[in-house]
Design a protein around this nucleic acid. Sequence first.
RNA 1: UCCUCAGUAGCUCAAUUGGCAGAGCAUCCGGCUGUUAACCGGAGGGUUGCAGGUUCGAGUCCUGCCUGAGGAGCCA
Length: 539
Amino acid sequence: MGRRAPGLGHPLSPGPALRLGRQPGYLRNTGRSLAASPLRRPDILGVPRTLFDLPFRDRVFSRRPRTARVRIDGAAVHEYRPLRVRARGVARPSRAGRNPRRRGRPGDDMTRIWLEELRSHVGEEVEVGGWVFNLRSSGKLYFIQLRDGTARVQAVCAADAAPAEVFARCAKLTLESSVRITAAVREDARAPGGVELLVKDLDILSVAEDYPIQKKEHGVDFLLDRRHLWFRSPRQEAILRIRSTVENAISAFFDERGFVRVDAPILTPTSCEGTTTLFETDYFGQPAYLSQSGQLYMEAAAAALGKVYCAGPTFRAEKSKTRRHVMEFWMVEPEAAFLDHEGNVSLAEDLVASIVAAVLARRRAELELLKRDVGALSRAKPPFPRVSYERAREVLSAKGRDLPWGEDLGGDEQTALAEEFDRPFVVEYFPFEAKAFYMKRREDDRRLTYSMDVFAPEGYGEIVGGSCRENDLETLLENIAAHELPLEPLEWYLDLRRYGAVPTAGFGLGLGRTVMWICGVKHIREAIPFPRMLNRFYP
RNA sequence: UCCUCAGUAGCUCAAUUGGCAGAGCAUCCGGCUGUUAACCGGAGGGUUGCAGGUUCGAGUCCUGCCUGAGGAGCCA
């Protein structure tokens, strides 16, 4: 735990490209500058070491076999030659069966394709790379189930269709070994998906050790300890894709409406709401806390930019142990000046609806794989059903669950209430005593606030919580006193009321819970790439 | 922090009233030219979470501890 492979460098460094260059068949700069520009001497330090450090448009290929000449900055021309270093444990690429179109065009990766593109290459010969997720053999026939992250396809290696050495190499394959395959693409009704690869050449890039995750059910503890490998299973892959679509839909939604993304700090001098326990860390001798919300900072940003939002991780040090809770989760928090309660509710409704619509439009296959009944999702169109807090109490009483006035809706209450609705619904006007100090009270009933929560149906619980903010300085000071919060750390926040206070409103949307509901997974840990849970933050 | 449940082979699980610790999958060896979590034959694989107790005898009963899961509280 905590180990780091040496020499990997910063994730944004060109490390991977340089490593690619150490594999057979790639091109390394020979150091020869063939034609220096009369206007400018090439800066040697700026010359890429391998061809793959260059954008494709800058690659100029020589007619001479196995070399490439490259124009850099449109000036100097450099010569590149194939690198013939054999990496440890990597088989030398076989000459037999190579795509003839590759000959004389070293470095040309035009024929390498992703598996998702396979259908448009039927009848052609292509090169693909990937991992063996399943393997069957039948004497003179290997069925290699291959995935490359974009799709899954079956490659067939037949003794009478591949060179003997290639066929023999297949015996070394294990689950999750990585390979590079040259093969003919053909349609075959017997193959899953109807298209398969007939292997002409196969290089084993890495023989995988005994792979722990099997093609059957596993316990949660076992899988979470191997989250980094669990990713590779189809179900987890689908969830991660949907999560990405949700994130893209969110930024598209706000972008279209002119909201500016402003990033909130993660290290904060104090808690935002003073309600939950925070993670404390040492900030050069001073205590600092991991942010539980970016909201107060968004209020400052809204006073500068009008319509803003943030999206980032938030942290709660509560020892929660339920299917809806994790210690670290991503939250999206819009905040807008001159937004009232009705506008806030509509904004939340529109956001949720547009997220769901994007997933329904672009991730049908993934939802199907997850066996998600899309009924409740298709009904997530504004306006959502709305009930007031007081009406919600009446509904709960009728169901035999009395909720004392002033108490927030607990997990059981949320589930009971959700039985009444077949789509997301809004509960509004919560009591002041159940909510945070910055929420604006109703003028007609000071006990209540202009607050609203959006609940996902089907028992997934609260996905949005928001309110209008108290913009009067005196009232805000009273509220802070009522919640017994220290004043000094909030001075900057009070400034927002001293220098041109306007009505503002906003909300927080829990990304993990939204993904969990859309995917129909029963635990939030599956909706987060690397969940941080009570007593578990490995890997 | 509290309540409930669980811990047996690498994985998922079984083991009758307290009586020889097993199966499937995975791994290794062999077979098979259309497999679909392939199949068939063979082999290896165990401090039954840890410590103590009761008993002729404990995976099983008792006590304590550890680890995990579900829920409460808190919330997105």
